[in-house]
């Protein structure tokens, strides 16, 4: 390699590599299935939801197009949930904001080493290894130690394999496993997420699967910013 080629190569790395590493992931589209079993004592409820979803982080808008249980669309944006059936708005209710805890935001933040935990004031308490897995325990900010417990992230080959959240009293309240990763547009996306919440005798178990995932799709803006019809009387 002559000197000119070497200089050009270094310039190429200098200009393009940092951009490649800090690629902004902002759009997510996928077919999905959500299976849920919730129980309180002996009472059990099951739910099955099938459809597709789109999420655009720039406009913070999440849309579900369901085929089961009913053919309808659910759009969540700002503080509203819109339910659209047969092209008509059948319900509009207030809803909480889509937070950083959203699975869709989390998936798009997979390129961040700590999923923004450090930015939220969490600090690393310990890093332990078990086989190929690395267990990183985070403690919440000091002012929330009475209200929030530690959080453990499990990583294997830099991929997030599990999230465990404890209550301050040591009760393992939430655990999530992520598996069957596929790399899409440079972003690792788990095909299956298993999620268990256990608190005060209640339990919710969910399996969320993604198929046909598209990341940072250019065009098809109408899918990410679904128009909301006027509420029919």
């Amino acid at each position: 390699m002559n000197r000119k080629s070497l200089v050009l190569y270094i310039l190429f790395l200098f200009f393009f590599l940092p951009k490649g590493q800090s690629q902004d992931y902002f759009r997510f589209r996928s077919d999905f299935t959500l299976k849920e079993i919730s129980s309180v004592g002996d009472s059990i409820e099951r739910r099955l939801i099938i459809g597709s979803c789109t999420f655009d982080n720039n406009i913070n808008k999440l849309s579900y197009s369901l085929t089961f249980p009913h053919q309808e669309q659910w759009v969540i944006q700002d503080t509203f949930v819109y339910t659209v059936r047969d092209g008509k708005l059948i319900d509009k209710t207030t809803a909480p904001y889509i937070t950083e805890h959203s699975i869709f935001k989390m998936l798009l933040a997979q390129n961040l080493n700590d999923f923004g935990l450090i930015k939220s004031g969490y600090k690393i308490e310990s890093v332990k290894r078990l086989g190929d897995e690395v267990y990183v325990t985070y403690l919440p900010p000091d002012e929330y130690l009475d209200a929030l417990g530690p959080l453990v992230l499990i990583k294997e080959k830099k991929l997030l394999k599990g999230v465990i959240y404890y209550e301050p009293d040591g009760n393992m309240m939430f655990r999530q496993q992520l598996g069957d990763y596929q790399i899409i547009d440079g972003l690792p996306i788990p095909s299956e997420l298993t999620h268990i919440v256990e608190k005060d005798g209640k339990s919710i178990k969910r399996i969320l699967t993604f198929e046909k995932v598209i990341i940072n799709e250019a065009g098809h803006d109408e899918l990410y910013d679904l128009p909301i019809p006027e509420l029919s009387q």
Partner: peptide
């Protein structure tokens, strides 16, 4: 089998519980 999906869809959206939304 239940057909109400609101809670499940909001849960995976990571929507927090604000007072009256």
């Amino acid at each position: 089998l239940k057909a109400d999906v609101s809670g499940s869809l909001l849960a995976i959206a990571g929507a927090d519980d604000l007072p009256l939304g």
